[in-house]
Design a protein around this nucleic acid. Structure first.
Lengths: 236, 236
DNA sequence: TATCGTAAACTGGTAGACCAATTAATAGCG
DNA sequence: CGCTATTAATTGGTCTACCAGTTTACGATA
């Protein structure tokens, strides 16, 4: 019952904010609004759409967040986007990242994780090694008890990602990983009992990073993710 | 002068919304608020911080967007986040993606672009090939005139990314690429004159994708990006 | 005493009024 | 006739009051 209700809620009527976002998107992608153009005032839009200014503001905030719009206080809101043609479907795509099929999410996580390991092996500082080591040990302790240790596992990978010295990769993974973990928790996919094997692989990855062996780090990380990727694909 | 002004604006006092976000983040990461806990009401928070409820709502909206909070209409807002330890620095990191150093952004764009090419070679449908072909031809036309054709170049890559059949990669690149292009435009870094060479590489990539030669596609794409990556690193 | 029903208090959602800064228009001066 | 200074209108930013659900507390009843 709960699930059925949830489904209905999903199909729910388009929210006011989404309506406005879509309309503005259309205005831009249809060429009525070009980059640099000033958007009609919030009051105008709210009246035009028959919706409160609150909603208009919310929509603008979101679009601004994606870099499509740029609002100048006490002056106006302008279209800041790049080539208009690219806008087609952009917003809906980004907005619906959470509904993206799960396999793609994991696939992306693997790609970025592997490359982060490669970079980490090249760039790690002594301080990085120390942090990774601590996280590794923390995971070890939990693994010994037989528990899954999702959080500790996550922290280990996080420290490697940080050692890659690429804040963008980190940010992007921060967008993706939480959703993956949440999905795992919800579906009850636990790697219970596999913890010690995972720890062993973690050890190998750590060693490769210590040795600054980028290829080995990437390869082992790839292998480490492989079974998860397989599992995920079979789910689909 | 403009730049100096921009710098001052950067150092500007912490905006009300950011203050609230930081405070809530602290509450969560310090353990005072655990996942599942209900947040104090908006009115409470606004009074507590001495800031209008509007700001509180805005902060909550942002945090909700990142999946940290979950607001239930007419009921309350709860902490929905994953492992709390992960929150440390999460928000500021994601929020400040636009200030991330540019080299990291390009590096990430290359990684995802190369892997997208690899996947595209494996998964491309006839329809994909058609779309890529059209974009390629479009770029060719512009290249013949000697112009840079930033937008047409972008579209070619976009079609490949779409052929990778991984919406998550597409979404993430959509977050990153516009900022890169914007930066290029601002700094006046144009690959003017290089267009025909780029077209030649595009051709090779297209051929590899047609042939479903994933390794070749990835390799050529990597080479294609290489000079840009070099250029970028030298800028830093 | 336990349980159910009702009402009051509280929740996030929304709309409108007000504010300060910016911009455009206009009147006055050279 | 052209330029500047002043003023009026417009902008996004903020706050306050109100709305419709939800939760909670309390009291009547069995």
């Amino acid at each position: 019952m709960q699930d059925n209700l949830a489904i209905f809620k999903e199909v729910e009527i388009e929210k006011p904010v989404d309506i406005i976002i879509r309309q503005i998107r259309d205005l831009i992608s249809s060429g009525k609004l070009k980059p640099g153009d000033r958007l009609p005032s919030e009051r105008m839009l709210s009246e035009r759409f028959g919706l409160g200014r609150t909603h208009v503001r919310e929509a603008i905030k979101k679009l601004e967040f994606y870099g499509i719009l740029k609002t100048q206080p006490q002056s106006g809101t302008v279209v800041a986007g790049i080539g208009i043609t690219a806008l087609e479907g952009l917003i809906s795509n980004i907005l619906k990242i959470e509904t993206s099929d799960f396999a793609s999410m994991v696939e992306t996580r693997v790609i970025l994780g592997v490359e982060a390991a490669r970079l980490a092996a090249q760039r790690r500082t002594p301080a990085d090694l120390e942090r990774i080591s601590v996280a590794l040990e923390s995971f070890h302790k939990v693994a010994l008890t037989g528990k899954a240790g999702v959080e500790e596992d996550f922290m280990f990978h996080m420290k490697i990602i940080e050692a890659s010295a690429n804040p963008v990769i980190k940010s992007l993974l921060m967008l993706v990983i939480p959703q993956i973990i949440e999905y795992y928790n919800k579906e009850g996919i636990c790697t219970q009992g596999e913890s010690m094997k995972a720890y062993d692989e973690h050890m190998q990855i750590f060693k490769a990073i210590v040795d600054q062996d980028a290829e080995a780090a990437a390869e082992i990380m790839n292998k480490h993710f492989h079974k998860i990727l397989e599992l995920t694909r079979s789910l689909k």
